[in-house]
Amino acid sequence: MKTGKELKPGTVIKLENDPWLVQKAEFTKSGRNSAIMKTKLKNLLTGYKTEIVYSADDKLEDVILDRKEATLSFISGDTYTFMDTTDYTMYELNAEDIEAVLPFIEEGMTDVCEAIFFEERLVSVELPTTIVRQVDYTEGSARGDTSGKVMKPAKLKNGTELSVADFVEIGDWIEIDTRDGGSYKGRAKV
């Protein structure tokens, strides 16, 4: 069983016997210490997609999935091809299948991802908890702050924007935490 709070992209839940892939999950605090999870689900049998809200403590039946290590091989339009690192099998996914991690997918990335299979079909991928990406553009340090507490916007090579410490410069490599939708962790030593 999974609770509404535990849903995340890549989770598959069973609703009325059909498997539904969580493509996106947004956690929000509601009132009086309750919370809700807004999800985007795809029916893995029919392809039908829908948006659904769960209370954080709703109980849901999850489906046990196969997981394998895979790396991004190449991107062609909206198709992302991943390669099984053990037997080199190629698998394709559409952009919308990996919507939640898409901001941190880019050509040339070497992260070993977790490929998620439902009945031998690749349905999603999960990135490692920490990934390293290069800053493509950011303004110069405004205040000369070195504490890491003052933040400023920055852009990655694939156009993704996020907040980084004020001292980060163009070309720097940074660590990103993928668990919370992608937040800056610190400057990486590369």
């Binding site: 839940i13 069973k14 609703l15 009325e16 947004e26 929000t28 509601s30 009132g31 009086r32 309750s34 809700i36 807004k38 829908t50 948006e51 659904i52 809200v53 769960y54 209370s55 709703d58 109980k59 849901l60 039946e61």
Partner: peptide, 24 residues
């Protein structure tokens, strides 16, 4: 489920959405 009042932006994106339970 009548939820709590909030002026946050996400409210309009969640208002009126269903929640499907495993039992149908």
């Amino acid at each position: 489920n009548l939820e709590y009042l909030s002026a946050e932006d996400w409210v309009s994106g969640c208002h009126g959405l269903p929640s499907l339970r495993p039992d149908g």
